[in-house]
Design a protein around this nucleic acid. Structure first.
Lengths: 229, 229
DNA sequence: ATACTATGTGTATAGTTAACACTAAGCAAT
DNA sequence: ATTGCTTAGTGTTAACTATACACATAGTAT
């Protein structure tokens, strides 16, 4: 997805090339944020876009997504899943390129240094409510990622990837509320969470000026799909 | 996906190319069938594989899937949705190629002439229970397609694409049972179908030697997603 | 001791899902 | 016209799930 404002490449290759685009979410200051880069070159110079890059011939598509994350924010072993492949001919006006999109989630955003100074574009966290039109079809990809996250929240334990190792139930409920964008009933939320039997007690909060909450951690961070049918 | 047993192309291109592979389902003689081709060339000579082909530079990924279907079985305007992209480096031992898989459904299989005699490989319908290991990673793709079909059966009106224009509720239930691979309760099935309010009456069966059933048709064949949350 | 603040807990109601068996309608054979 | 055959069509109950709702509790700070 790094372009130098070159002439169209439609004639240059008989077949189309592929790239990975990443929707990286994290909760920051009570808001859902996505990772964006500012484009350096035409035709989207100065516009915001999702981070991403070409898939190399010696790496799997999944590995490409992992490499991109590592290059952009220097971390590994985060939750990641493939979303959808966007393949309109003119989705990138200057090169025929198919985008395979990925969703990635980051729990503890503090440890992360955004690599804004190297060979890549500047890179930012931005609250999703403040994101306006992105370059390419990236607004559509972002929308798709958000709807996938919302639905997985309900039938999987995916939320564990947006929480620290130890967390209170209020914290967990807040993350659900931020993503689903509506209030949940505290008692019903707790009942449901306990019924799923995915978390275990892990001590209690300290140093707060009110009743300290019990802390919990997930029994496993492996993706668990809650049976519905 | 048409290969001539050539030497590996891993060095030839810096980036990877993409193809579409199709899982085409139809109900034939009370069984769920998938469309398969017999490979002509090495390294999978004689093996069965999903139909598919390279994405051309001037067509969208969706259009490629439509073109492939049209070339293979000569029909258009069928239900089709993208599934997942398979991107292991060595999934095709001789060329680096990323496969974007599609699910397609065919309702009336009688109108169809399989184009077995042209430039393409021989092409067959095969009951999915009789399909053993396919070439490449196509068994995995088939499995993925089947699980997608099963789950969409429950929360969408996707079954309309596997039924004729007019059908009885018994017929509809049979299709569900074939795909889900278990018996359903007749009364509960009917209650649920009527509650969804997706079908309307369309006459009655004739020329059968038992009580004739009412026929129904779908109010719309547009994909309807039944709200769950 | 009191005020403050976020934590933690139970019950009743409505809605949904699952289990279950007999009658009805048409055709064919006698 | 009666009988037999075959598939269509129909309701009720019980178990479970989801929702709505309000107050006591435990710790800190003053």
């Amino acid at each position: 997805m790094k372009k130098k404002g070159r002439k169209p490449e439609f004639k240059k290759y008989k077949y189309s090339a592929a790239a990975v685009d990443l929707v990286v979410f994290a909760i920051i200051d009570g808001e859902l944020n996505a990772l964006l880069t500012k484009m350096k070159y035409k035709p989207f110079e100065g516009k915001l876009a999702l981070p991403g890059g070409r898939i190399r011939v010696y790496e799997s598509v999944d590995d490409c997504a992992k490499r991109e994350i590592k290059e952009k924010i220097g971390i590994e072993n985060i939750y990641m899943e493939q979303l959808y492949s966007f393949g309109d001919v003119k989705r990138d006006p200057s090169v025929r390129i198919i985008s395979i999109s990925y969703l990635a989630l980051i729990g503890n955003v503090n440890n992360i240094k955004l690599k804004t100074t190297e060979k890549y574009e500047k890179i930012y966290w931005m609250p999703i409510n403040k994101i306006s039109k992105l370059a390419y079809d990236h607004s559509e990809i972002l929308k798709y990622a958000l709807s996938r996250l919302k639905s997985k929240l309900i039938y999987t334990n995916i939320v564990c990837n947006l929480l620290p190792q130890k967390f209170s139930l209020s914290e967990m409920q807040r993350v659900h509320e931020i993503i689903l964008n509506r209030k949940l009933d505290k008692r019903n939320f707790r009942k449901k969470v306990f019924a799923l039997d995915l978390i275990k007690e892990a001590g209690r909060e300290e140093g707060v000026s009110h009743r300290p909450s019990k802390l919990y951690s997930f029994k496993t961070k492996k993706l668990m799909i809650i049976e519905m049918f």
